[in-house]
């Protein structure tokens, strides 16, 4: 297999994969630093972590993976020529992205109402930074999904849904590390 064949085997645009790998590395580094800092104060981290809303984060996981499913289905439908169904799936995926952001917003608002801010404990520093940065990617992804539902070229949909799956991929790594590992 030549280098060109190897690159051709990769689904979608190479540039999108470079972006995906870069983003996973950035979040991976953030989570690695989070766990490294946790070594210095595991009890304090456990106490702070108990103030996080694991149920809301669990619901958001289901919301995001369902949205990812709809995006993947839209991609398959568009490649099969079913444009209307693909558009419907893309809009539904974007709406679930909005649901994710609404739940995340409610989570942040609840923390603020309880007087929990970024410097309450170092865990919240990472929590607000990493989940906030991830939420910004979700917002960007929602816009992308709606854009490609409108301009529904096969390549556009493939790239936008790859971005959306990256957001999904990051969340399934971020969720257990920030919320679950006690």
């Amino acid at each position: 297999m030549t280098d060109k064949d190897a690159l051709d085997a990769l689904p979608g645009e190479l540039l999108m994969w470079i972006l995906i790998v870069s983003e996973v590395l950035v979040f991976g580094a953030g989570l690695t630093v989070f766990l490294s800092v946790r070594i210095t104060d595991p009890d304090g981290f456990a106490e702070a972590q108990d103030m996080l809303d694991r149920t809301a984060a669990g619901i958001n996981t289901i919301v995001l993976i369902t949205s990812g499913f709809l995006a993947a289905l839209a991609n398959a439908l568009r490649q099969g020529g079913a444009r209307t169904k693909a558009r419907f799936c893309l809009v539904a995926a974007a709406l679930l992205g909005v649901v994710f952001l609404w739940i995340k917003g409610a989570e942040f608002a609840s923390k603020a109402a309880s007087g929990i801010v970024w410097d309450t404990h170092v865990l919240f520093n990472f929590y607000f930074m990493l989940t906030g940065f991830h939420a910004a990617h979700v917002a960007a992804g929602v816009v992308l999904l709606l854009l490609v539902a409108w301009r529904d070229h096969v390549d556009n949909i493939e790239d936008a849904t790859a971005f959306w799956h990256m957001v999904d991929l990051i969340w399934v790594l971020l969720f257990p590390v920030i919320y679950l590992l006690q």
């Binding site: 993976i65 991929l169 257990p176």
Partner: peptide, 29 residues
Amino acid sequence: AGVAVMALAWQKARIILADYMGLQRAPRW
């Protein structure tokens, strides 16, 4: 519990890469 939670996360990430992102069609990648 930590091993179990990380194993579940690892498996979820693998499914997203293979099935949602289409890497199933590119075994080397």
